[in-house]
Amino acid sequence: MQIVANGVSIGAVLFLMAAGLSLLIGSMGVLNLAHGAVYMAGAYLGWTICVDNGLPLPVAVIGAGVGTALIGVLFERLFHLIGGQADQQILLSFGLVEVLVNLSQWIWGAVAKSPFQVSWLAGSVKVGSASIPVARLAIAVVGFLVAALLWFVQDRTRVGAIVRAGMDDPSMVRALGINLDLVVAGVFVLGSAVAGIAGVMGGLVLGASSAQAIDVLLLALIVVVVGGVGSVVGTFSAAILIGVLDAYSRSWLPEMSSVVLYALMALVLVVRPTGLSGRAAR
C-alpha cells in the first residue's frame, strides 16, 4: 500500500511533466527537446515566488504557469519559423536547452535548490496502512485536476475536436477554413504552462536544479512513449503505471530500478509502438 501510494504521487508529477510534451508531439509534430528546460524554468520561478519571496504556493503555480507560457510563446514562434523539419527542430531545441540552462545558472546559481517548504503542506495523513505526506497529496490532486481539465478540453470541446482532427488530418482541417496554426500555437503555450506548473508542484519534493532540464525530459519521453502521443488518458495511465512500477522496482530491485523503466519503454516500442493510446505521431 505504501509503495503504491509513493508511486501514484510521483506518477502525478510524471503526468504533469509529460502532458504538454505528448500534446506537442501529437498535435504539432514538434520535437521539443527543451520541454524539460521549461519544467526547470517553472521550478526555479516557483522557488523565487514561493520560497525566496514567501508568497503563497497558488501564486507560485500561477506565476510559473504564466512565465513558462510566455517562454512557450517565444519557443512556438521559433519552431514556426523553421517549419516541420525534424533535424532542424532538434538542433533548435538543443540550443534552447543550453540557453535556458545557462540562464538559470546565471540567475539562480549552480547549487540545486532543496524541496520547497510550504507550512500548510507539512505533515502526513494515514490512508489505510500507508502514510502519505500532505505535499504528495497536493501534487496528486493538482495532477488529477490538470488531467481532468485537459481531457475535458480535448474530448468534450470544439477546440479539442479541432486539435484531434488536426492530429489525424491537418490538410482537411485547414480545408474547412480553420486556422490550425493558431490552434496548435495555443497547444504549445498550454503545454509549456503545464510544464511550468509541473515544475512548481514537482519542486515540493524534488527542488529545482539545472540538471532537471535533461532528467525531466528523459522521464517525460518514457511516459510519452508508453502512453502514446497526443492522448491525455494514455499519458495519465502511463505516468501512474511508471510511477508505481518505479516505486516497486526501487523497493524490490534497487540496483535494477532505472533498467526497469527503459525495459518497459523498449518493450512498448517493440510490441505496441503507438503506446497505450494507440495513436500515431504526426
Partner: peptide, 19 residues
Amino acid sequence: MKKLLLMLCAVVMLGATAC
C-alpha cells in the same frame, strides 16, 4: 514513431553533451 525514436536518440546525445 520515427520522430519519437529520433527524439530519444537526440536526448541521449544531449545528455552526453550538456555536461
